[in-house]
Write a protein that binds this DNA or RNA. Structure first.
Length: 898
RNA sequence: GGACGAUUAGCUCAGCUGGUUAGAGCGCUUCCCUUACAAGGAAGAAGUCACUGGUUCGAAUCCAGUAUCGUCCACCA
């Protein structure tokens, strides 16, 4: 790139830089030049869905993780960031089904399982790795040599092995249970995959038949033909006498036997205070049925139609059956009330179809079974324990409470899904037929490999919940089970597990994080990660979720093209705090683009003003003669390094970024570079400039890798080929040179800054033409040294002061702007409006008076002086004295003006 | 119903374990194209830190309550 370009053009360099990094091989920790005992630092990338495209949420995640990774790599850790994708069973199958229907008009059933899966894989060939390719655009320094997919061969093996292990340990079992059934997807949904929305519904109050004693209410009349009980609250006086009785009758032509049961869960004030129990089609009712030994009648089948055995209702879609029930009730005059109410509708998170609760045979992971390998604790207990004893910490820590609360209420996890795409359950059934050729007593085989006489067996048609395979992500990607034999870790698993941080969105804390913890505890008896960093959602500038349909989303690839990756990364890092949502609009990105450009120009200025770059050195030579400004910037840098280190280590990325931003722009560019324009000591100046710039680039690199590496590459004096693997700065290296830097001289520079600012203000207020020269007379007292430095600054900062006289003592000059700062008095002559000057000083005195009286109150308060820490009281006293003497000076001056 | 948050400048948000006259970015006002940068520079206005109590020498910060908003979970027959 030509050095004369005024603006940084990321488009021209980013891809090239990324290639350079990738070709270097340093994304792979095996290639890093490290000693044997270097500590490891591992993050596994939460695998995005294979059909995903990069959105701003991904970008935010990548920016945070890459920051951590680059920071630790530069810190000398054996750093691994492991990439991969998730097959997202239901989501992916849905996408392909939709596509199929649109293009050929066929459903998956038309194709059959094998053909359909072929279609899925064909589709995936086209989209696979799109997301990962886009990930590179974000500058993510992932080790591509270890890339994994939740459904590739090694992971299939791992998942199958895990299933078998859990089955053999009795953790996985088959059971009948009410599940959330989506009649459209033909699949069960996990509780967390069900969405609840409000809807208006007709709420009917009726009696099963004329002489039935209790009226009940429902929004789902069709299920009532499967009722086996009516539940009332045990405290309900109206119904108490019926409890335990049984009634038989005919409801809409269907014979029913209804038992009256008592249950505390029943709300006496809702409806009639009595609830018709339909065990097969409601979670609550199922529980009551289990407790009361009620008969379970399945009314609705998997297609959403009425089951066989219900006379004229059989085969009708549920909705129509409901209408028919109502019609019949009306005919028989059984309806007492009809209300419009708002209730909750459970829908499928994928297709929005209403959920049908159904009893069904499913595979479960028991969270309550005590396991010998976990010290006779259950998965649930152990997973809670590791959070409580801080083996795993949460950032921010409030999520620990949330996690524990969720875990304590956890039920067994249904892991079978009635779809085709995914890890097929490694269970086979042998068809054992009786004389009548009916299938009886199916024999079960569970194993890693199919049974030998496979032709006699049939594999379970279900696949596993996608979280089952992603729950194994930390170790299935590190070679498990091959790297875990006889209870011993080897290879990658030994080197990199447990990982250090899991960085993910808080919305999947329960969905994913909790399962990873349980799976890892079961499989290798250790936690999967030491820390869980939870980020919020990325929202648009109005605080709305970004979505394609609303069109309010920012496409990261667009803004990367427009503003550059670094600007995008910075706007996702600064202002982003753990666990909180982040609003991002283009304006914000634009702002950080401007900053990136500033950094570019800082380098350009330094380059242009250096005849030759000094050689790189880790420590600055003590024998250099440094100016006040040099020491000031080096001291600032030293502190900055310390703070950035500690901020990043404590996950305060936003604060680290803000401090860096402030230092770069305000301290380094606005002050130090301006001063450097006139200070003469060339060699020393160059060394300081070079040192600060080098360290600044390193500090910035984890945040904005592209521009920092680009500049690094242009400055060919550097020791390390790549900024990416150079050593992260330590404040120690500044300690020597700053030895003689006292607190006093530190304050001197602050005073100079104040003086100059004051002069600028004075000029602005008096509206002196920029070309107009003014005179300044400065009285130094005993601060001659500081004044010399100030003089140089003033002259060079184009304050327009033509004559500067430094005097030890002297007459006070009445018609002048008076400035007193740090024991120095300055009179500016020329172009002064007396009235305005009086006003200015008056205002200043007013402010001071307020301040002083505040301090006075505080200091006269005995409880403060006696109880507050000594150093704080002393500080306040000092402030009080300083303010008072300044006030006296100003008052004197004001008198003279009058 | 259960759990967890949020409320600070016109807008978006920082403010770590209580301690200067509460900060930043954007926006706004005035001035300036001074050869690193107008994607820039100099200056300025703007806040009862939601409300009410409490703890403390001292509260934006800790505690309790109120109001409003939000998220997650459960779930309504």
């Amino acid at each position: 790139m030509s050095k004369s370009s005024k603006q940084y053009e990321p488009r021209k360099t980013e891809d090239e830089i990324y290639k350079k990094w990738e070709n270097s091989g340093y994304f792979n920790p095996d290639n890093l030049d490290l000693s044997e005992d270097a500590p490891t630092y591992t993050i596994v990338l939460p695998p995005p869905n294979i059909t995903d495209k990069l959105h701003l949420g991904h970008s935010s995640m990548l920016a945070i993780e890459d920051l951590l990774i680059r920071f630790h790599r530069m810190k000398g850790y054996r750093t691994l960031w492991l990439p991969g994708t998730d097959h997202a069973a239901i989501a992916t199958q849905n996408v392909v089904e939709k596509k199929l229907l649109k293009e050929t008009g066929k459903t998956r059933h038309d194709l059959g399982r094998e053909k359909f899966l072929e279609e899925v894989w064909k589709f995936l060939k086209g989209t696979q790795s799109t997301i990962l390719k886009q990930t590179r655009k974000m500058g993510a320094s992932l080790d591509w040599s270890r890339e994994a997919f939740t459904l590739d061969e090694p992971r299939q093996k791992a998942v199958t092995q895990m299933f078998v292990n859990m089955y053999e340990a009795g953790v996985i079992y088959q059971g009948e249970r009410i599940v959330n059934w989506c009649p459209r997807c033909h699949s069960t949904l996990a509780d967390d995959e069900v969405e609840h929305t409000k809807q208006k519904a007709k709420f009917y109050t009726f009696k099963y038949w004329q002489d039935f004693p209790i009226a009940i209410s429902t929004t789902r009349p069709e299920t009532k033909i499967g009722d086996t009980a009516v539940a009332v609250n045990p405290k309900d006086k109206r119904y108490k006498k019926f409890i335990g009785q049984e009634f038989a009758g005919e409801f809409c032509g269907i014979p029913l036997k209804i038992k009256i049961i008592a249950d505390r869960e029943v709300d006496m004030d809702f409806g009639t205070g009595a609830l018709g129990v339909t065990p097969a089609h409601s979670m609550v009712d199922w529980k009551m049925a289990e407790e009361n030994n009620l008969k379970i009648k399945k009314v609705i089948n998997e297609d959403g139609n009425i089951h066989q055995g219900f006379g004229e209702f059989s085969g009708l879609p549920a909705k129509k059956a409901g209408q028919l029930v109502i019609k019949k009730l009306q005919e028989n005059n059984l309806i007492e009330k009809e209300l419009e109410i708002e209730n909750n509708l459970s829908t499928c998170y994928r297709c929005d179809t209403a959920i049908e609760p159904l009893p069904s045979k499913q595979w479960f992971v028991s969270v309550d079974k005590k396991l010998e390998r976990l010290g006779d604790k259950s998965l649930k207990e152990k997973a809670i324990e590791v959070a409580k004893n801080k083996e795993i910490s949460f950032i921010p820590d409030r999520f620990e409470k949330r996690y524990i609360n969720w875990m304590e209420n956890l039920h067994d996890w249904c892991i079978s899904r009635q779809i085709w795409f995914g890890h097929r359950i490694p269970v086979w059934y042998k068809k054992v037929k009786n004389k009548k050729q009916e299938i009886k007593n199916r024999e079960i085989y569970v194993g890693v490999n199919p049974p030998k006489d496979i032709e006699n067996w049939e594999q379970d048609s279900d696949v596993l919940d996608t979280w089952f395979s992603s729950g194994m992500w930390t170790f299935s990607t590190l070679g498990w089970p091959n790297t875990f034999q006889n209870g011993k870790k080897s290879g990658d698993l030994d080197k990199f597990h447990p990982t250090q941080v899991l960085e993910t969105g808080y919305e999947i804390l329960t969905l994913w994080v909790s399962r990873m913890i349980m799976m890892s505890l079961f499989a290798i008896g250790e936690i999967p990660f030491e820390n869980v960093y939870l980020h919020g959602m990325v929202l648009d500038e109005k605080g709305k979720k970004m979505s394609k349909s609303k069109g309010n989303g920012i496409n990261p690839l667009d803004v990367i093209e427009k503003f550059g990756t670094d600007a995008v990364r910075l706007s996702l890092l600064i202002g982003n705090t753990p666990g909180n949502d982040l609003r991002v609009g283009e304006e914000k990105i634009e702002g950080y683009r401007n900053f990136i450009n500033k950094l570019w120009n800082i380098n350009k200025y330094i380059t242009n003003n250096m005849e030759a770059r000094p050689p790189y050195s880790r420590d600055i030579d003590i024998n250099l003669t440094l100016t006040l400004a040099d020491k000031w910037i080096l001291d600032k840098m030293k502190n900055l390094i310390g703070e950035v280190n500690s901020d990043i280590q404590n996950y305060r990325f936003s604060q680290a970024g803000e401090k860096l931003y402030d230092f770069t722009w305000r301290d380094f560019a606005d002050w130090y570079l301006e001063i450097s324009k006139f200070e003469e000591n060339k060699i020393e100046k160059n060394i300081v400039l070079q040192t600060v710039l080098d360290d600044l680039l390193k500090l910035w690199h984890p945040f904005i890798p592209f521009i920092t590496e680009t500049i690094w590459q242009e400055n060919k004096n550097t020791k390390s080929e790549l900024l990416m693997i150079s050593e992260f700065p330590k404040s120690k290296s500044y300690a020597k040179i700053l030895n003689g830097w006292s607190d006093e001289s530190k304050n001197d520079f602050d005073k100079i800054q104040k003086i100059i600012t004051a002069i600028r203000n004075a000029r602005a207020e008096n509206k002196i033409e920029p070309t107009q020269k003014i005179q300044a007379v400065i009285y130094a007292g005993n601060k001659i040294d500081l004044l010399r430095k100030t003089k140089v600054l003033l002259e060079s900062l184009r304050t327009g002061i033509s004559e500067l006289e430094i005097k030890k003592t002297g007459e006070k000059i009445p018609d002048a702007i008076y400035i007193k700062e740090g024991g120095i008095e300055i009179y500016l002559l020329g172009g002064i409006d007396k009235e305005e000057e009086k006003l200015r000083i008056g205002k200043e005195i007013e402010n001071l008076t307020k301040y002083i009286s505040g301090l006075e109150n505080k200091l006269s308060n005995k409880s403060f002086t006696e109880k507050a820490p000594v150093n704080i009281v002393a500080e306040e006293r000092k402030k009080f004295r300083e303010a008072q003497s300044k006030k006296t000076e100003l008052e004197l001056h004001l008198k003279k003006l009058n």
